[in-house]
Amino acid sequence: MAQEPQAITPTQAITEHTPATEHGGGFPPFDAQTFPSQLIWLAICFALLYLMVSKAVLPRVSGILAARRAKIDSDLADAARLKGDADAAVASYEKALAAARERAHAIATETREKLTAESEAHRKAVEAELADKLHAAEAQIAAGKTKAMANVRGIAVDAASAIVARLADKAPTAGAVDAAVDKALQR
């Protein structure tokens, strides 16, 4: 770039093209002789181009673009519809899942309650049975005790009669011994 001035010496440029324009005899773009021919060709070409553009080019390209836009729009609509479907499916799945969970919970609760009630009833039955047995045993014990106590009194009467007979050499009356034993047992 340092040597650039060498390449574009202004004097050189002037000396090179100034004579050229003059000996060319008129500047071609301003040569009116060529105008009619150029105008006719321009009119033909531009008319041809305009016809082609308006009748073929623009309808075709705008058709392509419109078809693409329609395709994209319909695809987007399809996608939105499918997404709605998927959302609905998810929602119904979740609803079903929640219902199932609830039902399972209910069954579990019911089963638990049933089992609890059963075991409770069983326990009560066993308890009642045990209580009955207990009562029977208590009654038996009481009966035994009464019987034993009765025996104890008989023995005490006999023993007292025998003791008195040995000590006093005289058999006491049965009534006196009974009264004395009863009195003693009262204490």
């Binding site: 002789q33 060529t34 021919s37 006719i40 060709w41 041809l48 181009l49 082609m52 553009v53 080019v57």
Partner: peptide, 27 residues
Amino acid sequence: TEFAITNSAVFMFTAVVLTALLMLGTT
């Protein structure tokens, strides 16, 4: 005035043909 197929006319037509190729040939 002489009418002829000129170099200018040739390139005008070329421009039209290239437009056709670009816009119609490719689509």
